[in-house]
Amino acid sequence: MGLELGRDGVNLRAIGTVNALTTGRPGEAARIRCPMWAGVGSEDPITPPAQRDAFTAEMQAAGVDWRLVVYGGALHAFHHPPVDHPVVPGVGYHPRHAQRAWRDVLDLLAECLPVAE
């Protein structure tokens, strides 16, 4: 959602996304005017390496201040604790990487939303 708002040119201070590495139409990423962080699991079958590569190429070509963290051994939705229904193949919680991703998002927010003193 935040990524799409950025592509629409909405004035945001930061964009953080987990598992949402969609690519836009040509030129849309150039509308992103804030730092962008994304996290994805290395074993995520829903966001495979080719999709990650397309995403990074799009961000790079648009000159976006971006970073992508690939969490080794993590599946799709690695940040979400287990629920009480059958697990979807390729989806799985990874508590260590969930904590790391949360710290990465907090770091982004600290950088982009400084606290007034």
Rank of each mutant, 00 (worst) to 15 (best):
R13G: 08
L68F: 02
L5W: 15
T47K: 07
D8W: 08
P26F: 00
G72F: 06
A30Y: 01
R67E: 15
D8I: 01
M36D: 01
M1G: 10
L5H: 05
I32H: 09
L21C: 03
M59H: 07
I32F: 08
G92A: 09
L12N: 08
L3Y: 12
L113K: 09
P26G: 04
A14T: 00
L5A: 15
L68R: 06
A61Y: 09
E43S: 09
G39W: 02
W37K: 07
G24Y: 08
V88D: 10
V88G: 05
M1E: 12
V105Q: 12
L21T: 05
H79L: 03
N11F: 00
P35C: 00
R33L: 01
T17V: 13
I32C: 10
P82F: 02
M59P: 11
R52C: 07
G90T: 02
P48L: 05
H85D: 11
V115E: 15
R100D: 14
L21M: 13
D84E: 14
P114W: 01
E4S: 12
E43F: 06
F55I: 07
A116G: 12
Q99N: 10
V18T: 12
A38K: 04
P35A: 01
H80V: 04
L12Y: 13
V40F: 11
T23F: 00
A30C: 01
E43L: 08
P49D: 02
N19A: 12
V10G: 08
P48I: 01
A77P: 02
L5E: 13
E117S: 13
E43H: 07
V10H: 15
G9D: 01
G27Q: 03
